[in-house]
């Protein structure tokens, strides 16, 4: 399971980078088209939002796996390691509940959003909102993996 987590981590980082690169290219394309060609492709604003939202939610999953989210652990860092381990298990379980809510209700939101297209693009905004439950699913995998290792005592940070 650890190996799968590592591969997933690397792949997701690459995907986030590529999505972000595509976002950059589409933006530049828009400037070039408007100023040189006098063309306005109206799907571009929707496309940039779609790429942006997916970049953020993919990146968030990677950050979770890497313990790299903005943290303020001045309290926990003072605890001795056995208490810290219990606290880590509890907080990861609480977080797991949050993730499951994001997945279950996220798919409901996606369903509702099938009826709402982007403003100037005939694509349902559901495809942007899908990023949230998918990211939550990835984090759930990482979270379960982390919990298993905590219970087995494999992690001691």
């Amino acid at each position: 399971m650890n190996r799968v987590a590592d591969i997933l981590d690397t792949t997701l980082a690459l995907i986030a980078g590529l999505l972000f690169g595509a976002l950059f290219l589409v933006t530049v394309l828009n400037i070039v088209l408007r100023n040189l060609g006098g063309i306005a492709w109206l799907w571009i604003p929707g496309m940039t939002k779609l790429l942006f939202i997916w970049t953020v939610f993919t990146g968030a999953a990677v950050l979770y796996q890497r313990h790299d989210h903005l943290v303020m652990d001045f309290f926990v860092s003072k605890l001795e390691s056995s208490k810290k381990r219990v606290l880590d298990i509890v907080s990861n379980v609480v977080f797991l509940v949050f993730l499951i809510v994001l997945i279950v209700y996220g798919f409901m939101v996606v369903e509702g959003r099938m009826g709402i297209p982007f403003e100037t693009w005939r694509l349902p905004t559901a495809y942007a909102y899908l990023a949230a439950p998918v990211s939550a699913m990835l984090m759930t995998f990482f979270c379960v993996n982390k919990l298993l290792r905590l219970v087995k005592g494999e992690i001691n940070e």
Binding site: L19, F20, T55, V56, T58, G59, A60, V62
Partner: peptide, 12 residues
């Protein structure tokens, strides 16, 4: 890659 991931920590 790094920027996408770092920015996500703010945007999330």
């Amino acid at each position: 890659k790094d920027t996408a991931i770092f920015s996500s920590s703010i945007m999330i």
